[in-house]
């Protein structure tokens, strides 16, 4: 879960960059940037949960 989370964060960032480079229509660009940020947040949540579970395991 930790590695998945760690990889999802840059994956979301690449979606944001791709939206900037490839899309010209404002709506499509905005939507793809929002989707990229959503993927980043998902990665962050997964990564945080993996640390939380590791901490509980240590206790």
């Amino acid at each position: 879960m930790k590695i998945t989370g760690l990889l999802l964060m840059p994956a979301g960032w690449f979606i944001v960059l791709a939206a900037l480079v490839l899309l010209r229509a404002f709506l499509a660009q905005d939507l793809f940037i929002a989707a990229g940020i959503g993927v980043e947040i998902l990665g962050l949540v997964l990564f945080t949960r993996s640390h939380l579970m590791a901490k509980r395991g240590n206790e």
Binding site: L6, M9, A11, G12, W13, L20, I33, G36, I37, E40
Partner: peptide, 21 residues
């Protein structure tokens, strides 16, 4: 606003995993 959001996305999507690694 979109430019600022791209900056935040870069912090979360690049800087955080990079510095953690």
């Amino acid at each position: 606003m979109l430019a600022q959001i791209v900056g935040v996305a870069t912090l979360v999507g690049f800087v955080l995993p990079f510095t953690y690694s």
